[in-house]
Design a protein around this nucleic acid. Sequence first.
RNA 1: GGCGUCGUAGCCAAGUGGCUAAGGCAGUGGAUUGCAAAUCCAUUAUGCGCGGGUUCGACUCCCGCCGACGCCUCCA
Length: 517
Amino acid sequence: MTNTIRIYNTLTRQKEPFETVEPGKVGMYLCGPTVYAEAHIGHMVGPVIFDTIKRYLVYSGYEVNWVVNITDVDDKLIASSRKRGIPMSQVATEMTMDYLSNLQSLGVDQINSMPRATDNMGEIITFIEELIEKGFAYASGGDVFFDVTKDCDYGQLSNRSVEDQQGEGGGAAAKKKSAGDFALWKSAKDDEPSWKSPWGQGRPGWHIECSAMSRVELGETFDIHGGGLDLMFPHHENELAQSRCCHDKPMVKYWMHNGLMQREGAAAKLGGKSDRAENADAASNKISRSAGDGGLAQLIEEQTGDRIRFFLLRSQYRSTILFGDNALAEAGQALSTFYRLIERYDRLSGHSFYFGTEYAKTRATGDQELADASGELMEAVAAKRSVFLEKMDDDFNTAGAVSELFEMARSINRFIESEDLEDSKKRGDEAMSTLASAMSVLRELGAILGLFIKKPKTAGGDGSEDTVEGLLQLLIKLRADARAHKDFATSDTIRDGLAALDITLQDLKEGTSWEKS
RNA sequence: GGCGUCGUAGCCAAGUGGCUAAGGCAGUGGAUUGCAAAUCCAUUAUGCGCGGGUUCGACUCCCGCCGACGCCUCCA
């Protein structure tokens, strides 16, 4: 187990060595979605980076339990349910399915548990009772509030004082002792969905479910808690207050917050800042569902999940990521470098990269030049692998790590060129064994990032890949015949025609391959 | 008003108190090719928003300024 991982902790605002509560084990919790509407791309930043973090921790020898909650009861869900004339639970189910399918498309498959708020009402109510008992909360007119004045450490995560709190206002304000108090339990109005509690029919406040469910799944103190920067206040601040006060011990060792995503271009510069009132109507590049963003499933269909995942991983997770067509296109262009190399390897080796077939070690042929080239390649690959891991150790710097992958790909291509492996007559077992070894390192590191795990889709989405492949082979053969007769007019007609369909041909030493962009 | 983040080549984006400031995209020259595409080689920031300061030395630390942005209200 490496013990060199360092994590930027929002609580202390610095990178700290990673030390788990329990040796060798990691409990981590990520705030999941409120399932009232379709997800947008911004919702995937957290899941993708946490999925990668888990992969890396597992790779480093930890046993990791990763929990992502589903908030399936809140005001917006109620509003959506009324508007659509269907039960709140149905809205929640639909949107949960949308969310899960998006996660799957992006290769987020490391989550151990996804508890729902409505399945944990008993625990939530118990948690609130404990807080009341210990004097940190009070019931008031059917509602229950957390008393922020009783928590002398309140505000340490987001670095703000109780005096600064403006409070939620609205109807609940009159029931509160002080403006900064927040709801643990909300009494139900007329036909709202509700649950029975010691304070009457009602539903939980926003923050309490995370305190209750994280305790159930991960215990009173666990290792990592994550979420978007926008959740730092009030959500995480309040969660932290609830749990710390209830248990009289720290809730979380490392608080991690990912940067928010913004739309590229558009109103990038709109003068003034700082004055909320004036800026309230200013155009924003922010992505949010309340601004009508959504449709992630369609975006994934157009762009592929791999491309979006790679795009997200090319930035440091704490920074603001600018999202747009250009950015995605560039990511796709860059990613294809790896796909081409992988296809090249498959073609030369006759094996599938994705199945990870290992070559038997071969006896050296005594070719000194080859031995030197092999040694050079493996040395370069080992060096880049080592830097890759150092970058990941440093607060999961996926952006820096990716650059090592590019250099690795170049080294491998250089080897293929220098040994002329495109020529089957020069393709000996010794060279291919070296190539396979180098590729296996690419596979190993790619898997940490959740990349290059399965073959990407190349043909169109009509499901007839065999047909497409057959047609392409037919055209490639016709073109080869034309070229053999130096009928370049015909051969170029075929190639240009395919290019118009975004299909690019590549003439190799032996045969022709194609790819669709 | 309070709290906080950021400003690195045409674009995206890592990074470090001191060797030649990663990588990608785009571009240019070359190898290769019937021509391409792909791949490889070379090349593209004497400088890291601006002005001061600390230091033997700062892009990296401190202060000021300018600019972009986030939170303080539902938000990943």
